[in-house]
Design a protein around this nucleic acid. Sequence first.
RNA 1: GGGCGCGUAGCUCAGUGGGAGAGCGCUCGCUUCACACGCGAGAGGUCGCAGGUUCGAAACCCGCCGCGCCCACCA
Length: 885
Amino acid sequence: MTANRLTDTPPRVPERPALDGLEQKWSEAWEREGCFRFERGAPRERVFSIDTPPPTVSGSLHVGHVFSYTHTDAVARYHRMQGKAVFYPMGWDDNGLPTERRVQNHYGVRCDPSVAYDPDFEPPTTASGGGAQPAEKEPLAISRPNFVELCLRLTETDEQAFEELWRRLGLSVDWSMTYTTIGERAQRISQRSFLGLLARGEAYQLEAPTLWDVDFQTAVAQAELEDRERPGAMHRVRFGLAGGTGDALIETTRPELTPACVALLAHPDDERQRGLVGKEAVTPLFGTRVPVLTHPLVDPEKGTGLVMVCTFGDLTDVVWWRELGLPVRSVLGPDGRLTEVPWGSGVWQSEDVERARREYEQLQGRTVNQARKRIVELLVQDGDLVGEPTPITRAVKFFEKGERPVEIVTSRQWFVRTMTHTDELLERGRELRWHPPYMRARYEDWVNGLTGDWCVSRQRFFGVPFPIWYPLDDAGGVRHDQPIAASQEQLPVDPSTDVPDGYTAEQRGAPGGFVGDPDVMDTWATSSLTPQIAGGHTDGTSGSCEDAELFASIFPMDLRPQAHDIIRTWLFSTILRSQLDHDALPWANAAISGWVLDPDRKKMSKSRGNVVTPMHLLEEYGADAVRYWAVSGRPGTDTAFDAQQMKVGRRLAVKLLNASKFALADLPPEGDALTNPLDRAMMARLAAVVADATGSFEEYDYARALERVEVFFWWYCDYYLELVKGRRYDTGESQAAREGAASVSRALRRSLSVFQRLLAPFLPFVTEEVWSWWQEGSVHGASWPDGEELLDALGAVEPASAGIEEDALALAAEVLKEVRKAKSEARRPMRAPVSRVVVHERPERLRALELGVADLRAAGSIEAIATVAADELAVEVELAEEPAG
RNA sequence: GGGCGCGUAGCUCAGUGGGAGAGCGCUCGCUUCACACGCGAGAGGUCGCAGGUUCGAAACCCGCCGCGCCCACCA
């Protein structure tokens, strides 16, 4: 890093400095000069690497994005000024469901992996002027590669718009390193990592009960669930006992699953149910015999104390089913409707098969809700519904992007082992430095609450395919137990169009041939590899995109910034993958940002007709002002959207323009030393502020750093600049005047240089503008101020005299405030002359004041200052007579 | 049910053992030679409630109340 140069050429200060146009002027200059280009070849210890969150590109960026990305940018700029080579890429998360949905609606198509690729395909409706034309007809079925092409086409324009916004906001990312989560590099790295997991037994395939979204018809993961309150009803249902010797009452919110009942359970200590345990109950309507068993998870306080286990009503059913070794009676299809079942065969025995068949026909083909309504009618007819259903509100699990509750459907899926690694993951969580620290609790809660391995396969299309095929036996049956893995050289592959080694394309689907795995990976299975994708991780076997040297210089990364809502998904899965692939933490620090709270909850939602988009904010207030609002939100803290704060930020930017103009324009020649005590005391204060801001940044507390700098800067403008103004303009003949001016000149330049750099991470545009008036190069490439630099400016100071000088500055400011108060109360202008000021104060402070009395007199237009020894400060101010007329 | 965070001026929030603060808003004043996108001044608070520790608590401990979030095997 080059030293900051105080050039000898006079500063070029505009007559009327303004903020307008600075964003465009400087963002273009930064791009032209490559200011934020990552310095390749920098050794690891001089690199600061950031695992940028790739925003989802389907949809638009909102103020919440602006908020948290600005936090990271301030930190990035700080470390860059500390001399680090900052690895700060941007990624676009374009893979996954949200994009699929948009493409389907936008182009009127649907993906069908069995359709062959059409290289000349053009979508039926084209996006004209950005507006989608809703497809009237049945969606057109197209191949997966064609579908993916449309996804890419649609996300590309979004990505351009996002980049434009980020540049306007002043994010100092290296745009040459941008990646996408559906891009070739992401696919290859995802597939390669998956094959590694498979080879090491960390990934496996299993046919098992899986969380299932019936609308998207795909498996989903535990991490993608959320609770929603939904009205329901509790039904009390009577089961007969085998042999007709009484009955058993259960309560359920899901009576439609009665045909799927496989057992009744009681708590082992529940005396009331003791007589039933060990017997067999008979399901109403269907006459299926089910055992009455016990399990400690049953809550005897709930309902009748007896619970019906179905395959499967909820995750607890899965636990009971597994632990008690119960059979499967599955009635729910992947579309969320009740399927056909073979009454009388296998597990579908009944005391009255004909009746079971007849009753079930009333339910078959219906949705869950329809079936529930119907079975209640059937139970009432049969007299097995006890009392009226009781309306209740209960939490139901939903896929976070879904519209109907998730069901549990048995299907074949890929899993990544997590349960065998939870201890390691908890240990990694303790190694990670969390900012703020309490966010670790959320991670630990999540890891401790995991109930199963991570289901990574999705029955979707716009994602990274599994690099897997299966052989077909002579009868055309799929041999799932003999997966054919793609070779490293083939990656990335799409098994729906690519052919495994040793086969020909003609053998696809033919007996003795092969089929591709139809699924794609969970979007988090790719996103969990962002450090590897961004850093070009390679195992040396393939590809020009990967770069072993680069990866070694950035991994493990320094910082993962992200919001708290995706600790359980993105943060957790990234730690897991890094643990499995590298046996290491992926980053040293995690900075967790809060959310932006919507002010509309409290007021003015209707008065504002338009949605406030980030671009509007940037246009109205300026990027620096918007950034100011963002960085005043403390790490991890939810922050209210507040346009007023943006105005305050704009004021700060304008203030810096004007203070810089004052300090630099027509400045008298600079002296070799700070000879004036007030100048020295101000610089000493500034040194303390630098230390405070630096310490705060080291703790990732950008907000505290800004606050300290800002408070001191306003004090500097209101008191220090006013106190030294007279001396600055006094280019008189005397030696003392020349020396005083030379000292203030030096102090102004040194302090201004420090302020401009301290504010640069927060207000990059205005600081770059004022820096350009008098310095070479970019302020963002300048070095962060440090103690040594300030000591150098200050010269050697005895601690005792430093204390006296500080007293002089403090007391001069206090007296000036009293003088202003007197003038304000007398409704006189601030320049109104004061004939006499009497300062009562402790003698040692009065002696100190001597050092600053000349500046004080000039600043307050004070003719005479007298002092009186006293225990505490009191100031008498005698204003001069108001001039007649 | 468990956990985390928060509760300070009308609003947004700093402040973690010793004077209750900032900005905005409000009121009043000031064309001041960097800045009217400005400057100066003022009013405004039983620091959620109740105990405890301490010479001393907004801060530390216990309990309670309220708000928000996360997690849970929510039948």
